[in-house]
């Protein structure tokens, strides 16, 4: 009688121990709100990070993804989408979240190395095989009769990089004349038959639906399209000048704090700078930003003159206000069409 009681107690304590033991291996969930073309990158990265985190802490981490045009995604986070981290196409959209919803401090971009951009990219041209329209540089795509595919700068981050790269080229060719640049970009948008809301939508328009002669694209998106649809159908043309696109990342402090995921969210972004994170970025055709990885992948990318948003446009805040705000240059040229 007594011994059976002891046995029961023993069993109960073993069970309790087992329960607490399993409680140590937590399961954490992160929501990464990202822009359009990073889908494949984060599928691979999330799996790698989950493995790394499991080995380091014993916890399981499941990273959920949401993708869309960068401005639209920022808007969703402002409206309450519970992102733990945002990985968007440009810093202005992340600034907006900080300013409108006050979810993290305004100096967020200083929190991680390289302006919080673990990888960079640039804007290139994708043309159909054999380059039937003979497109070599920006000056070729404003010619009448050339159909250009680019998304809507109001909703897409990539589209804004496209626009600014064209503007920077025109400035350089015309000795810094803003009037000439405006005319150049206006001519460019006269050649655009359809504005999709995100970069991936534009890729589908050009690649799947077969519309357009030239597609202004993220370099990574261009490589991916070639990989998915065969290099026998398309060619990448690198213009004489392009823009250094820095898609930054940050933890959404308040959301992460509420969900108790601050630590893993931080580690998630920091791991992007690790050799493995950089390797995955490079494999997915993003330009790694950490010097060792940069050197390793140097052969994959064409060496092109890249201007930065800070030196030509005085930073994203200013560029956004001048070019893309309501009534800005983009509205002026596009509405006149």
């Amino acid at each position: 009688m007594k011994s059976s009681r002891i046995l029961t107690r023993l069993a109960a304590s073993v069970l309790a121990l087992a329960l607490t033991g399993s409680a140590f291996a937590k399961s954490v969930e992160l929501l990464n709100v990202s822009y359009d073309p990073t889908r494949e990158l984060y599928v691979e990265y999330n799996a790698a990070f989950a493995k790394y985190w499991k080995a380091k802490t014993g916890d399981d981490v499941v990273v959920k993804q949401s993708h869309g045009g960068a401005a639209k995604q920022a808007r969703s986070v402002i409206d309450g989408l519970q992102a733990d981290v945002v990985t968007l196409a440009l810093s202005y959209d992340i600034d907006e979240i900080s300013e409108k919803a006050k979810l993290f401090p305004a100096d967020w971009q200083k929190r991680l190395p390289y302006n919080s951009a673990p990888y960079t990219s640039t804007i290139v041209f994708v043309v159909r095989k054999g380059n039937p329209k003979g497109i070599k540089d920006w000056s070729d795509i404003v010619k009448p009769g050339v159909s250009v595919i680019t998304p809507n700068p109001k909703t897409s981050g990539g589209a804004r990089w496209n626009y600014l790269a064209a503007w920077a080229y025109a400035l350089e060719k015309n000795g810094g004349s803003e009037e000439a640049a405006k005319k150049f970009v206006a001519d460019l948008y006269k050649n655009v038959p359809v504005l999709d809301s995100g970069a991936r939508g534009s890729t589908t328009t050009f690649v799947q639906r077969g519309i357009g002669d030239v597609f202004l694209s993220w370099e990574n998106e261009a490589f991916l399209a070639l990989k998915e649809f065969g290099a026998d159908k398309f060619e990448i043309i690198t213009p004489s000048l392009s823009i250094l696109a820095e898609p930054p990342v940050t933890v959404v402090d308040k959301n992460a704090k509420k969900k108790g995921s601050t630590e893993v969210a931080k580690a998630y972004l920091e791991y992007l700078y690790s050799p493995e994170g950089q390797e995955i970025a490079g494999r997915n055709f993003y330009r790694p930003n950490v010097p060792e990885a940069k050197a390793k992948f140097a052969g994959q990318f064409v060496n092109v003159k890249l201007i930065t948003i800070d030196e030509v446009f005085g930073g994203w805040q200013k560029a956004q206000k001048t070019h893309f705000a309501d009534g800005g240059f983009f509205d002026q040229i596009y509405l006149k069409k």
Binding site: R39, K64, Q65, G68, L81, G201, T204, E228, F229
Partner: peptide, 22 residues
């Protein structure tokens, strides 16, 4: 919806996502 995979995607939204992912 917010388009969170495995959480707030309905079937019609899922179709669009897969299509856009080739």
């Amino acid at each position: 919806s917010g388009h969170i995979r495995g959480e707030t995607n309905t079937l019609p939204l899922h179709v669009e996502i897969l299509y856009n992912e080739y």
